[in-house]
C-alpha cells in the first residue's frame, strides 16, 4: 500500500546487523540493513557516579566512625538477652499476625453480611480498636487479670460451669498476644475488606450462577483473588507489627527493642551499638518477610498476569545467559572481522 519499495531482506536471526558502523568501517551497510545507534545518556552516567560516591562515603562513615562502636555491636548481636527478646518479638508477631488475620477475615465477612447486627458489631469493633491506642488496650488487658481473678464459662449473667484461674491463663505473653491481635484484627479487617471489594462483581455472579456453595465461593473463588490485593497490604501491616511489638513492655514483656532499651540502662555507654543491634535484627526480619512476600505474591498472581515475574534465581540465570550470548556474539564478530 505504500509507494516505498524497499527490498525486504531476510536475515538469519543469529546474524543480526552490527550496531552502527561497526563491521564495515569503510563502507557502511545500506541504511535498511543497519541497527539504529542508541541515544547516549551522559546525564545518567553523571547521576550514577554521584550516587555511587555518596553511597561509598556513607558506607565509609558507617564503618569508620567510632560513634557506632562496631566491636560492641558484635558483642551484643547474639547475646542471650537479645536473642530472648528476639524470640519474644517473633512469637508475639507470629501469633498476632495469624490471629489478627483470622479475626480480620471474620470481621470483614461480618461487615459484608446481610445481617445488620453483625454489620454494626463489626463496624463498631473496627471503629473502636482503630481509635483506642494500643497502649491503652495493653494496659487494660494487663490489669484485667488483677481485677478479675477468675473467668467463668456458663450462662450469661447466670451460673458458670467452668472457671479459669485467670492469672495462670493470662501470662504476659498471652496478654500481649491478645492485645496485639485485637488491635491487628481491626486493621486486618479493612485490608481484607478492601481485597474482597477488589474482586469483580462478575466473579460473585458467576460463582452464584454456577450454584457453588457459599463457603466454596468464598474460599476458592473470592479469597484467592482478594489475596492478590490483601497480601501486599497485609505484609505492610505485618512489618509494622514486628516493630509494634516494642510496646509489649507495657505488659512487662521485653521484646527485642525492650531488651535493647533495658540493657542500655545497665550499660549506658553501649546505647548506640544496642540500637544498631535492634536495627540489624529488624532489617533481617523485614528482609525475610519481603522474600516470603515475593513468593506468596507470585503464587497468587497465577492467572492474573500473562507471565509470572521471574524469581531472582531465574533473573540471575537469564542474566548470565544474556552475558554469555553477548560474549559469544562479540567473539564471532571479531572472528568475522
Amino acid at each position: 500500500m505504500s509507494e516505498r519499495s524497499l527490498p525486504a531482506p531476510t536475515l538469519p536471526v543469529a546474524d543480526r546487523p552490527p550496531v552502527g558502523v561497526g563491521a564495515g568501517a569503510t563502507a557502511p551497510a545500506p541504511l535498511s540493513r543497519q541497527r539504529v545507534i542508541p541515544l547516549r545518556h551522559p546525564g545518567r552516567w553523571i547521576a550514577t557516579a554521584v550516587v555511587l560516591v555518596l553511597v561509598a562515603q556513607l558506607a565509609h562513615g558507617l564503618v569508620t566512625n567510632p560513634f557506632y562502636q562496631w566491636d560492641r555491636f558484635q558483642y551484643w548481636f547474639a547475646r542471650p538477652a537479645i536473642l530472648q527478646g528476639l524470640v519474644v518479638t517473633l512469637e508475639v508477631t507470629a501469633l498476632s499476625a495469624v490471629l489478627g488475620l483470622a479475626g480480620g477475615i471474620l470481621l470483614a465477612l461480618a461487615r459484608q453480611s446481610k445481617n445488620p447486627i453483625l454489620r454494626a458489631v463489626s463496624w463498631t469493633y473496627i471503629w473502636l480498636f482503630r481509635s483506642v491506642p494500643l497502649i491503652v488496650v495493653l494496659l487494660i488487658l494487663y490489669n484485667f487479670s488483677a481485677l478479675y481473678k477468675t473467668l467463668s464459662l456458663g450462662v450469661p449473667f447466670g451460673p458458670g460451669f467452668v472457671h479459669f484461674n485467670e492469672s495462670a491463663l493470662a501470662t504476659d505473653l498471652v496478654v500481649a498476644t491478645v492485645g496485639l491481635s485485637l488491635n491487628e484484627a481491626a486493621y486486618a479487617a479493612e485490608v481484607v475488606r478492601a481485597g474482597i471489594l477488589s474482586v469483580d462483581q462478575g466473579q460473585h455472579e458467576a460463582a452464584a450462577a454456577l450454584g457453588l456453595p457459599k463457603g466454596y465461593q468464598f474460599r476458592r473463588i473470592v479469597l484467592p483473588q482478594a489475596l492478590r490485593a490483601i497480601v501486599p497490604a497485609y505484609v505492610n501491616q505485618l512489618i509494622g507489627l514486628i516493630k509494634g511489638t516494642s510496646l509489649v513492655f507495657y505488659v512487662s514483656l521485653l521484646d527485642l527493642f525492650g531488651e535493647v532499651q533495658n540493657m542500655g540502662s545497665t550499660y549506658p555507654t553501649d546505647v548506640v551499638p544496642l540500637l544498631l543491634v535492634a536495627t540489624g535484627w529488624y532489617v533481617v526480619l523485614t528482609s525475610v518477610v519481603s522474600v516470603v512476600q515475593f513468593y506468596v505474591e507470585r503464587h497468587y498472581a497465577r492467572g492474573a498476569l500473562r507471565t509470572l515475574p521471574s524469581t531472582p534465581l531465574q533473573k540471575l540465570r537469564a542474566g548470565v545467559r544474556g552475558l554469555r550470548e553477548r560474549a559469544d556474539r562479540t567473539h564471532l564478530g571479531t572472528v568475522k572481522a
Partner: peptide, 20 residues
C-alpha cells in the same frame, strides 16, 4: 479511670481477692 472502664465492660467476670 481506664481500669474502671474495663470493669464496666465485663459483666461476667467475677472479682475475688484470693491470692493465687
Amino acid at each position: 479511670a481506664l481500669i474502671a472502664l474495663a470493669g464496666g465492660l465485663t459483666a461476667c467476670a467475677s472479682s475475688t481477692t484470693a491470692k493465687t
